[in-house]
Design a protein around this nucleic acid. Structure first.
Lengths: 340, 340
DNA sequence: TTGAAAGCGCTAACAC
DNA sequence: GTGTTAGCGCTTTCAA
């Protein structure tokens, strides 16, 4: 086992000073050609690699980006991370991922740890817990310290920073319109609790679309589910209780669970009933029938979020100027709405 | 925007020396109580947080763990990451995730960047490309430099280090036995290319189980698919070509694609034909019918991998002693093999 | 053309 | 008890 060589060691071996080595390795024209060559050859031989910690300390930049998300076992978030990684790596940044596990406390702890000079900036999507409490002091704090922060998807109006979101309301609106267009008359909505920004916005889109089409909003057709792991029962119950011929679900799990109930109930999809879900993940692509979805373009979101952050870090974008980028959702048509 | 305070600033403000502040903040009994209190109060007021970069430089530890995986949009890998995060965070480590994107070159680049003092140790699962080329010089290099490395799932015999794997062969063996037990007579295998350690091992398990049960291995019932995104055609073809009443698939996508073909062909699942897949992800849990799977316990794998690495880092485990932990797969029975 | 010295923020051995 | 000094690995004046 050979330890990494340092500038100092090279300098000693070669009988020159540390600063000479440092300069030579970076091709400074201050240093004579002969010396430069000698030093570079030696460095190569011993496989010299600059210590990035020392460099970070020196110029107070880490070239690390901190990403805090609620969970990673979730197709949408992983596509966003993939998008962040791509842009970040291309710009020479590493990505440190922390999971808040939907908990406010963990979110705060993660932010604090990372903020202590582990990273240059944050990309974050709020935990459910944080959205419920509406306590954003930890975000304010890092912003105050001059650390750039970009929020995506689960954002808050109360914080001024760059944001990337999808047009959740519009997306839901388009989905409902689409269902109406293909002939649905009664459309159910399976959503999450309202304190989640996305749940609320999508519900709004649903309502607006109905209204604009002169259809009365019927509370009985709307389900608000809090716990993802416990959705089958309320959904089955909905099918017992009501008759409808279209379903909009705010995620693919709800959508697929509903399709299962529909099939069990004896409906033919999409002939008797059509389905659209948010989150264009594996389930949507592979379920039978495949699910028509509102694609949130997670990869692009990640790209943009990373781009925004890096622009701030490298001062391409001025500090006090905040943008909110809204990504257009698109509908991916599949078997759950289109005869196949 | 207020910059973070440093020890130096506190020292200056309070008219004491830096080392006094440093000691006082860490409750050294060398420092008088009065001074200590004064300093701590001041630090608290100005929200002093030690600069972790400086500390890293000082003790040549970063408290970061580097994780390199082929992709993140993959249920198995995300569960492993979740497992790693948990153990790592509890031990005060951050996790830096890098994606190799199944490419050898990216894997090498990622390793090199991280190895330049960004992290204390690696957890890695090899890219397909690396397994195909059998070029492991980058792994050897970091090990040589004294950086601990733990491999999981996609490992190589040629490298000496700690490893966490599942009993892939055994898992496949058990799955086939299970299918035979519930009455299957002809079992097809849908696998990946053989250069992937897991594909090979699972195929081996399949063969052994048949052999031990006195059933002849029939090449025509075995599919080797290289490209995940292009599996429907060969699978459909298999259903055209052959008759069988059981299927073992090495991942849930293949399994689910096969179920779709079976249903289209008019089979009833599980009455006419039964299915088992590896990877116990969302698809398995939510498909209709739900898929019986060989669970690889990704979360536990992550836990163990992180534990192993940290034990090495904190010298709880001696340097030159390498373990290979084999995790037992378990079969999760669901609707695809059991009448419901 | 080269090198000495200071400094990034912190810790620790050793003086006072 | 408190301070001085050196040093982690590197960059960057500034002097020689």
């Amino acid at each position: 086992m050979k330890r990494r060589v340092t500038l100092k060691q090279i300098a000693k071996e070669l009988g020159v000073s540390v600063s000479t080595v440092s300069k030579a390795l970076r091709n400074s024209k201050e240093i004579g050609q002969e010396t430069t060559e000698k030093i570079q050859a030696f460095a190569k031989l011993y496989n010299y690699k600059p210590n990035s910690i020392a460099i970070s300390l020196q110029n107070r930049k880490t070239k690390n980006i901190g990403v805090i998300i609620p969970e990673i076992v979730h197709h949408f978030f992983t596509t966003v991370i993939t998008g962040i990684e791509k842009v970040a790596n291309e710009a020479g940044y590493n990505v440190i991922v922390c999971l808040s596990d939907e908990s406010f406390d963990k979110e705060v702890i993660n932010m604090e740890t990372l903020a202590n000079s582990s990273i240059d900036g944050f990309i974050i999507s709020l935990s459910k817990d944080t959205q419920k409490r509406r306590d954003f002091h930890h975000l304010r704090e890092v912003i105050n310290q001059g650390m750039p922060l970009v929020m995506f998807d689960r954002v808050s109006d109360e914080i001024y920073c760059d944001k990337v979101i999808v047009d959740d309301a519009q997306g839901a609106y388009k989905a409902v319109k689409y269902l109406l267009d293909i002939g649905c008359k009664k459309i159910a909505l399976i959503s999450t609790a309202d304190y989640l920004s996305v749940g609320k916005l999508r519900t709004m889109g649903y309502k607006n679309a109905l209204e604009d089409s002169g259809i009365e909003y019927d509370e009985n057709l709307v389900l608000k589910i809090d716990d993802m792991d416990y959705c089958q029962e309320p959904i089955a119950d909905l099918f017992q209780r009501e008759k409808f011929d279209g379903v909009l679900a705010v995620n693919e799990i709800f959508a697929v669970t509903a399709m299962r109930e529909a099939i069990k109930t004896g409906y033919k999809i999409p002939n008797d009933i059509s389905f659209i879900g948010f989150t264009d993940g594996l389930l949507s692509k592979h379920f039978y029938p495949r699910l028509t979805t509102v694609n949130q373009h997670g990869f692009e979101m990640g790209n943009i979020a990373a781009r925004m952050l890096i622009d701030k870090l490298e001062e391409i974008e001025e500090e006090e100027h905040y943008r909110t980028e809204v990504i257009k959702t698109t509908i991916v048509e599949r078997e759950s709405t289109r005869p196949y």
